[in-house]
Design a protein around this nucleic acid. Sequence first.
DNA 1: GTCTATAGCGGGATAGAC
DNA 2: GTCTATCCCGCTATAGAC
Lengths: 202, 202
Amino acid sequence: MLHVNDTEKIIFDAAQKVFTIKGFSGATMDDISKEANVNKAALHYYYRSKEKLFELVFQKNYHVILDKSRNILETTDNIEEIIKKLNNMYFDTLSEHPYLANCILNEYTTNSDRVLGLITSNGSVNFSILRLLALVRVKIFKGKTDFEYSLNLMLNIISVNIFPFLIRPILINLFKMNDVRFNSIMNNRKIYLTDFLSKHLQ
Amino acid sequence: MLHVNDTEKIIFDAAQKVFTIKGFSGATMDDISKEANVNKAALHYYYRSKEKLFELVFQKNYHVILDKSRNILETTDNIEEIIKKLNNMYFDTLSEHPYLANCILNEYTTNSDRVLGLITSNGSVNFSILRLLALVRVKIFKGKTDFEYSLNLMLNIISVNIFPFLIRPILINLFKMNDVRFNSIMNNRKIYLTDFLSKHLQ
DNA sequence: GTCTATAGCGGGATAGAC
DNA sequence: GTCTATCCCGCTATAGAC
């Protein structure tokens, strides 16, 4: 049974933190064991290998945003409402896990083989993104428009929400801001985005 | 003097290809030497170390898009014209170098120390992004609006252009498309985007 | 300037004591 | 279940022959 100080859980959380920031090949088992304050051998005891541990972390990260998106699209009908909820959800999730999007993207780019293997082995993941697009077509366009047009709109919604968080380290360095200032700008941006995106639905 | 088959140039091109896709820690000197069909020792002979070689590749990648953006903003006055040119430029550049944006982003995230060192040692880079934002404020808003509002617009323009290329591997896998189809969708998207973004300038 | 051989080390993984 | 010690591979880097 898991309790708060369970070593297994401590290791997983540390691994998530380290892998998410440094990526699979950038992170070392030593980094993780130091972050978790546990012996390096314990990592292998609980998770067998670096690969296995990474897979679990990646799967979890991958589902965080995806499940929330799907939930919004499945329980909301009004278009403006969907966009507003998505804006809020992206802001909340990415403020809480600043490197989550980078992690997913980074592994997709630098090691697509490993990641594609993980995802195709779990059919529900791909399914849910395709479902997301299908829902956009049905809910926003009532099925009246073509694939490319729906895709373009979906890409715009996701782009303006996620991209600024992806380049967060660049923006913070460039404008010499701290985390508080960055979050404040992104928080104001939520309302701006809802307005920006709604304009295109009339 | 450099000629076409110069070993030094062959190595650099191979390094660019490998580093850009696999990232610094994911790539090995062996990968690069095989890609270049050159002996591994030659890499050290010409570029001393993996770090030095990477720095040169990164600097070059970093300047590709930045210099083009700056050029557009410095030589164009009409707002619609600027956006149209930026859309075309992003499409052309990222179609030709599909992993360029991922490379810059990946290193910023996984190893910000190395990259920030590179960039701050070369003042002109930071300068040119700040200049880009300043130009947006002056050219698009005639200096009449505040920092956050200008930043938001600039973020939107960059987001909708770059993000789809960042998630290119995801899109290609998800919709089972090939490179030709992907490029075709992105090419159509250029016109769509010019229209999409122009709506917000009235 | 190009190659082979090898030094040297960092990092993943395991054996075995406790 | 937790620790120390250690194995061993893969990778960067260099020495030295040609």
